[in-house]
């Protein structure tokens, strides 16, 4: 093992009665892109906020390059950059002013014009913050997280509001930042993002880590050989599908039905649909994916029929 950039040990945090983080431990190696993947409310953001020292855990400990974020925030802010959800800048600050200001806050900043160029902000430099679109604000926020040349950067819901092209650009930027030596802690609920970027992923649900492995490792461990998805032409009785031999899970997702199971699942599935007079539109059969692993590990009963 290399040297650890971030070590979280048995972190616990509750808000009143609600347990947000229920014993999370993880170790992020220097130069790694580490993903924290999970549904909304899983405790991802609370975890990284504890890492950044914005919140203090009730129990456990956190170290970032040996620093305790809960007691030594001034030192931490020099080595950790963060892009936060739900934080905005001064309404009338321009993009250029924000970049210049953040540059002045750090001892060894990167050249902000390069970052601005990479993030497509160059044209927007004279624009005021309040006039930017959500995606533009997001790109500026990423630039500000990186301008201080942090040793560790926390990116919380990196690609929220970005169009597909901007998302690709940002992903490449994250890879390049890592190649330059920065450790990346990536919070996301987007499977594709985690799979594309991360060396390792922790799947978090209800305050705990449900699995922690490389993307490939997670897929292999998930078991089911195939994932069958289709858009039902009529309401479908999911319970009947669940009872089929070899089926591991069935759930409805955004108008699609997703069935995971053994190789012969699809053969057994089609006759049942026919009996229900359901035509499986846009039918796809795929080998196991991170989706499968994720859904198995964060399983919550969703709706029974579509």
């Amino acid at each position: 093992m290399g040297s650890a950039a971030v070590v979280v040990d048995d972190l616990r945090k509750r808000y009143g009665d609600k347990v947000a983080v229920d014993g999370i431990s993880l170790r992020v190696e220097e130069g790694e892109i580490f993903g924290i993947l999970g549904p909304n409310g899983a405790g991802k953001t609370t975890t990284v906020e504890c890492v950044a020292g914005l919140r203090i855990g009730d129990e456990g400990s956190v170290r970032v390059h040996g620093l305790d974020p809960w007691t030594d925030r001034p030192a931490l802010t020099r080595i950790l950059g963060i892009q936060l959800q739900e934080s905005r800048l001064q309404a009338k600050i321009t993009v250029r002013e924000a970049l210049e200001l953040w540059t002045a806050l750090y001892d060894d900043p990167v050249a902000w014009p390069d970052l601005a160029e990479r993030l497509g902000l160059t044209e927007l430099l004279p624009q005021r913050y309040a006039k930017l679109s959500g995606g533009q604000q997001q790109r500026l926020s990423i630039a500000l997280a990186l301008v201080g040349r942090p040793r560790v950067v926390v990116l919380d819901e990196l690609s929220t509001g970005l169009d597909p092209r901007a998302r690709r650009d940002v992903w490449q930027l994250v890879r390049d930042v890592r190649a330059a030596g920065t450790t990346v802690l990536l919070v996301t609920h987007a499977m594709e993002e985690a799979q594309q970027l991360c060396d390792r992923i922790a799947i978090v649900d209800r305050g705990r880590i449900r699995a922690l492995d490389t993307p490939t490792g997670l897929v292999d461990a998930a078991g089911p050989a195939t994932t069958t998805t289709f858009r039902p032409s009529a309401p479908t009785d999911l319970e009947a599908l669940r009872e089929l031999p070899g089926v591991v899970s069935v759930h409805a997702d955004d108008g699609r039905v997703v069935v995971t199971g053994a190789d012969d699942t699809v053969l057994r599935l089609l006759p049942v649909l026919e009996r229900q007079h359901v035509v499986p539109q846009s039918l796809r059969v795929e080998a196991g994916s991170l989706d499968t692993a994720y859904l198995d590990l964060t399983a919550d009963p969703i709706e029974e029929t579509v």
């Binding site: 914005l54 936060l84 934080s87 001064q90 309404a91």
Partner: peptide
């Protein structure tokens, strides 16, 4: 208040200047 509600103070808490 405006800065606090917009999260400007929160954002600056993560920088060396505070």
């Amino acid at each position: 208040f405006a800065y606090r509600e917009a999260g400007v103070l929160r954002r600056l808490r993560t920088t060396p200047v505070g």
